[in-house]
Simulated scan of single mutants.
Amino acid sequence: MIRHYNIEKWIAAYLLGALSAKERDELEKWIEESPENEKKFTHLLSEEKFTEQYNQYNKVDSKAAWVSFRNKTRSSAFRIEWSTFVRYAAILLLPLTVAYFFWWTPGQQKQMSQETILPGASQAVLLLQNGNRISLNAGSGNQIPVGYSSMATASEEGISYTHADNEAVDQYNTLLTPRGGEYRVTLSDGTIVHLNSASRLKYPVTFSKNKRVVHLEGEAYFNVAEDKKRPFYVVTDGLKIRQYGTSFNVNTYSSRYIDVVLVSGSIGVIPDSGKEEQELKPGQKAEFNRSLQTVSVTDIDVESYVAWNDGRFVFEDESLENIMQTLSRWYDVDIRFGSPQLRNLHFTGSVDRYETIDRILKAIAYTVDVQFDIQERTVYISK
C-alpha cells in the first residue's frame, strides 16, 4: 500500500506540472486503490478554499518574496536567483497546503493549546581563555578583548575576529549556544561558522601559519575561506574533517553517528581509529558510526541537511522522533510521546524555522494524524 505522506507531495507536483512519469504512475495507482481515494482526490481539486490558496501561488510578488527571504536568512554567502527561489519555495510549501485540505475534513481538526512558544534567536556565550564569560545576542555592538591585545567585534551579524592580533595563536575562545539559540562567528581567516542550538565551537583567536583547527560539538555550517597553504580542520569526537576552502555541514548531535554533508568544494573525513581518509564530492554525506569507527559515503539531496542555515526546516520522509528532537533543541521544549509507535510516524514538508512552534506542529498534525498539547514548555504527543 502506498504511504500517505507521499500523496500530498505528488499532488503538489501534479498541480505545479512537475510530476515525473514514475510519480504519476504511483499517484494513479493510489487513486485506483479504492473509491475513497478517488473521492478524496476529486474533492481536493474541487475544494473552493484550497483553490483560493493554490491560486495565490500564481499571484506571488516574486521580488518581494525574495527580499523577505533574504532578510530572514541574513546569510551573505547564500546565492540564488529570486525567480528560481519562488518556484522552488512553491514546490516545498504547496504539499503542506495540500495536506491540510486533503486529509482534514470538518470535525477532524486536532485541538492544540494556545500557549505560544517562540523560535530560537541569535544568542550565545563567549568563553575566554581566562575563564571570563560574555553574553552575546543580536543587539550586541561592541568591541570585546579576546586575548592579549586582540579585539573582536560583536554585531547583529555575529562576532568577528578579522582584526585579531597575530601573536594570539595560543589564545583560545569557545562559543556556546544554548537550546533555543544560534550564532555566527567570523574567524580570523575570514571563515564563517553558523553554530546551531546546543552547540560548542572552540577555536584560536588567531590561526597558526601552518594549519587552521577548530573543535565542534553539536551542529555547525562552515563556509571556509580559501587558503591552499593552510588546511582547515574540524575536530569532533572520533572524527576529523579536512579542507582548504569549501562549504559543508557537520552534525554531531547523535550519540550513534556523525553526519558530514558537503555542499561545495571537496573535503576529506579522517576517523581517529587511523583508517584511511575518505574524500567527499558535493552532494554527498559521510556518516561516521561511532561504535564501529567506520565511515560510509552516500549521494544525497543536501537541502534537508543544510536548510536550517537559511532559515527553514526541510523534512524528507523524516521520523516524528527525529523531527521532535530537532524542534526540542530549537524551541527549548521537552517532548513526551504517548506511545512508542508515534515515534515512527513520518512527515515530509518544509516550514519556516522562525515561526512559532504551534504553527509547525499544526502542519505536522494535519499530515500524520496526531494531537499535540503544549503545557509549560512540554509538548505532549498522542493520537
Score class of each variant (00 low, 15 high):
297 V>D: 11
161 Y>W: 09
171 Q>M: 11
237 D>E: 14
346 H>Q: 13
197 S>E: 06
218 G>H: 10
361 L>P: 11
202 K>C: 08
161 Y>S: 02
134 I>Q: 03
322 N>K: 15
164 A>N: 07
84 T>K: 15
124 A>L: 03
51 T>N: 15
28 E>D: 12
59 K>I: 00
79 R>W: 07
156 E>I: 06
239 L>K: 08
271 P>A: 05
1 M>K: 14
28 E>M: 09
179 R>Q: 11
242 R>S: 04
69 F>K: 09
95 P>H: 02
286 A>G: 06
151 M>C: 12
208 S>F: 11
141 G>D: 08
280 L>S: 05
261 V>I: 13
152 A>Y: 00
6 N>G: 07
239 L>M: 09
200 R>H: 04
160 S>K: 10
205 V>T: 08
50 F>R: 13
382 S>D: 12
32 E>Y: 10
196 N>H: 09
124 A>S: 05
381 I>G: 00
23 E>N: 14
195 L>I: 04
99 A>R: 01
47 E>M: 09
187 L>D: 00
220 A>I: 00
211 K>D: 14
286 A>F: 03
221 Y>E: 03
371 Q>C: 08
90 A>Y: 04
111 Q>S: 15
141 G>K: 08
109 Q>M: 11
113 S>W: 08
270 I>P: 09
193 V>P: 09
262 L>C: 02
218 G>C: 12
320 L>M: 13
241 I>S: 01
38 E>T: 10
294 T>W: 13
15 L>S: 04
285 K>F: 07
17 G>T: 05
96 L>T: 01
280 L>E: 05
266 S>K: 14
76 S>V: 12
252 T>K: 06
67 V>S: 15
4 H>D: 10
165 D>Q: 07
215 H>E: 15
257 Y>D: 10
236 T>M: 14
178 P>F: 00
23 E>D: 15
218 G>Q: 10
333 V>C: 10
70 R>W: 11
298 T>D: 14
306 V>T: 14
291 S>F: 07
241 I>A: 02
221 Y>T: 02
90 A>E: 06
216 L>I: 05
177 T>K: 00
379 V>E: 01
